[in-house]
Write a protein that binds this DNA or RNA. Structure first.
Length: 139
DNA sequence: GCCAACGTTGGC
DNA sequence: GCCAACGTTGGC
């Protein structure tokens, strides 16, 4: 089981929208970056991920679960682009801001802190634990 | 709203 | 195959 982080601008696709989808989940479409796509290809059913609001909010707001393996992105005919489906698991009791991550020495190697432009990224088990702790949420 | 960082495209 | 130009992301 691996851990991931998904970035989305709240104006485009928010945690509230994702949560409202419930068990059905939603395609994580629109990714047009090879590195992000490759990460999605490695995902397995049951992998967990953080849902992060980029740009305006800059905070981790919830936990999602991968519920469909990588498949063609329905928003394009270009067969290069694939995506997984994810469903909301639970909301953080307290959002974890980017600033909090940057301030915590245990998260100094986190991709979120070091590679601002990667929209789908891996999270180590240790980082997962720390961020959940900061969010006062069960890992 | 600005701009740095980075990824992609396309001319050569 | 290199690299300049361009477009996009996302922090500030």
């Amino acid at each position: 089981m691996r851990y991931w982080l998904f970035k989305s601008e709240a104006e485009v696709w928010s945690w509230d929208q994702q949560f409202a989808k419930g068990e059905v989940g939603e395609e994580w479409n629109g990714v047009r970056n090879y590195q992000a796509r490759n990460n999605m290809r490695e995902m397995q059913i049951g992998d967990l991920g953080f849902f992060y609001h980029s740009r305006a909010e800059k905070e981790v707001v919830g936990i999602v679960e991968v519920c469909a393996l990588a498949h063609p992105d329905s928003t394009t005919d270009d067969e290069r682009w694939e995506c997984v489906d994810i469903k909301a698991v639970r909301s953080f009791n307290k959002p974890v801001t980017l600033a909090m991550c940057k301030d915590d020495p245990r998260l100094s190697d986190m991709v979120l802190v070091n590679n601002t432009r990667l929209s789908v990224q891996p999270v180590s088990p240790e980082e997962w634990k720390v961020v959940c702790e900061l969010g006062e949420t069960n890992p």
